[in-house]
Design a protein around this nucleic acid. Structure first.
Lengths: 217, 217
DNA sequence: ATAATTTTTTAGACAAGACTAAAATTATAG
DNA sequence: CTATAATTTTAGTCTTGTCTAAAAAATTAT
């Protein structure tokens, strides 16, 4: 597997979230910031290697093998993110580009040792689940903060949009994974919220609350 | 800098050990397990980028900039080796190939944090010095074990030939960096030695003793 | 149902980095 | 000091992964 091939498989894995549906050439090209014609070329190549099932003009779907490889790239990416944040004290918003490189390091032994070294974490620093070596994901029961009722408590389990500015916003306010959130009030008009996190009161707009996953308490 | 370019610079750095002498096309090609014609192509390219001074039919020499970049690749390689051995409990003989990949990860911040995380080590697991971020190397005063006189003590500081079989030989006998060596006897005929390491007596042939660096005590 | 639009594919080109075969230069030996 | 050998370079080809422009298929709208 070349680096480019791995990137295509990973992009397909993430686009066809959970389900493993078909992915269109254009969607794939967009995700990888490349042209549809390039995506077509690669899909044909991956089909020949039986990593995907590709049908002309119909897009492609990961084969079991392709899916497994993709899951292991994601596994590596997220394990390295944990390493960077937990061990090297990087911030949430600084780790993505580096993990993007580290995910291509080839050594099955390394991945397993890293996993153990980190204490076999189940989620990455953004709360996204880490697939195990078979590609299985431990599903965590979580809802969006905006669906949470006033006068209730919940724990921050993850964030949806890992946009840079958003991550900086959160880390600046010291809002992090595992934070206990108490919803005081929800404004019916704009659906903004008043919440308490670590003794501090925050006013949170709808756009923020729809990008935070929580687990009710 | 592409990965190939980095590999060429690093190979030149290591071939022109310390000195920064000129390196021949063939020597470079051999080191990189490629053909001389490929090396020529690359040297011309690196010359255009002013990373080396290349003269047709005369070989090439690293420019200050090329030399600095090469030193940082070596720095990364050796820091990652320390990480793999110290933190992930890999053996001496298992880390080279993985470090070969990790050395190309691009992020100045990562290198500095890794360095701190590892306690700013000065040597890698084979006793080779780790250049600092300016490319400077702390020279350690060491001699070959074969030059050590009978009835003397010394400390194992490094190994010369990091050949796989040799590393396995050493780790199997539990001979490692920092081991205290007492030379009991040196046979004049074949220059083999009788030494004590960690309460155990070993019979060491000339070829072994010329590949071990020690510091007299 | 046919025309217009969008999506997807093909064809041809390019850059990086490698290779082979042949030519040019330098080194070595008689 | 030539003749031969070894080294190095050039020229041309190949693969990977990308691109543009044009053709083909699928979708949408009238």
């Amino acid at each position: 597997m070349t680096r480019a091939e791995e990137n295509y498989l990973k992009a397909m894995y993430q686009l066809s979230a959970g389900k493993n549906q078909r992915v269109s050439t254009t969607a794939l090209a967009e995700r990888l910031e490349t042209k549809p014609s390039s995506a077509t070329d690669m899909l044909q190549k991956l089909h020949d290697k039986s990593m995907v099932k590709y049908t002309r003009y119909k897009g492609a779907q990961l084969s079991p093998e392709g899916r497994h490889i993709a899951s292991q790239i994601v596994r590596k990416h997220r394990l390295w993110e944990v390493f960077l944040v937990e061990k090297l004290a990087f911030g949430w918003d600084q780790v993505h580009d580096i993990a993007e490189q580290l995910e291509h390091i080839k050594s099955p032994d390394l991945v397993e040792r890293l996993d153990v070294f980190l204490g076999c974490p189940k989620v990455d620093p953004h709360g996204d689940p880490i697939p195990d070596d078979k590609g299985n994901i431990e599903q965590i029961n979580k809802i969006l903060l905006c669906e949470q009722e006033p006068n209730s408590r919940c724990v921050l389990m993850g964030i949806k949009d890992t946009d840079d500015a958003f991550l900086k916003y959160l880390s600046q306010k010291n809002i992090k994974l595992g934070s206990l959130i108490t919803v005081l009030d929800k404004e019916p008009f704009d659906e903004s919220m008043t919440v308490v996190i670590d003794q501090k009161t925050h006013f949170i707009s709808k756009i923020i609350s729809t990008n935070i996953y929580v687990q009710p308490r």
